[in-house]
Computed example of a mutant assay.
Amino acid sequence: MTDATAGEPETVSFGYEEVTPEEKTERVGAVFSSVAKSYDRMNDAMSAGMHRLWKDRFVRRVKPREGETILDMAGGTGDIAFRMARHGAAITVSDINQDMLDVGIERAEKQGIQGLAWSRQNAEELTFGDREFNAYTIAFGIRNVTRIDKALAEAHRVLKPGGRFFVLEFSTTEWPGFAEVYDFYSHRIVPQLGQMIAGDSESYRYLIESIRRFPKMREFEGMIRSAGFRHTKVEPILGGAVAIHSGWKI
């Protein structure tokens, strides 16, 4: 439902529920505060470790280079930032959730990774100036943003001309047969894993539901183009269960 006067949605999806934008922001924050400390262990359990390969592939597409500046939005526990920092780029790790950032900072200290900047930010209202970054990355975070169009517009704003935009996100697999298996696994097994490992089945039930409500690959690519990006591309993984989206600010 849309408010025709203000142009803002009256309700947005929180999993399979419809809630106000303000309530979604609050509830998503509570989800990630709940799962922050077990987030990385759950990623390994849910994907049988494959998320590590997806992230490696994602960073290879970004091609971080020494001397350039990159904003890693929804960077939370640092998985993407740590990979990019190895190439000498100056990385700013941002997340709306301080609990996730705190886990990332602790992990960086334990692994001896230095030189990262950590900044609590709302993807829809970044405090950075125009044209500050050479690249913007967001991995498994865009679907949790309340107003995706605003986050895309902000990404475009803070990128320099010629800047690169990359998204790694779950989507909808197009492989026949696999879709049914994946649907059963995600809806039935993942919440049970969440209860076993994180003591929280409901948060992981929401995360699965949020995947189902996220736009399909070509629809999301259209949203990226509408935000002003050009030369957009979609790279499906596992038939689209996961996808790498990219675009350029011209």
Rank of each mutant, 00 (worst) to 15 (best):
D3Q: 06
D3R: 09
S13N: 13
V19T: 07
R27K: 15
G29W: 04
A36S: 12
D44M: 11
D44T: 12
M50C: 04
H51Y: 14
L53E: 10
K55T: 06
K55H: 10
R60E: 15
P64F: 08
L71R: 01
D72V: 04
M73E: 03
G75K: 05
G76C: 09
G76T: 03
A85Y: 00
R86S: 15
H87S: 15
A89P: 01
N97D: 13
D99A: 15
A108P: 05
N122T: 13
G129T: 05
D130H: 14
T137P: 00
V145F: 12
T146L: 07
I148W: 01
I148E: 01
I148H: 02
A151R: 02
L152I: 11
V167C: 04
L168N: 00
E169R: 02
E169I: 06
F170N: 00
F170S: 05
F170H: 02
F178W: 11
A179F: 05
Q192W: 10
Q195E: 15
Q195V: 00
I197W: 06
S203C: 03
Y204G: 07
Y206N: 01
Y206K: 02
E209T: 00
R212C: 12
F214W: 07
G222K: 10
A227S: 13
T232N: 06
E235C: 03
A243N: 03
I250W: 07
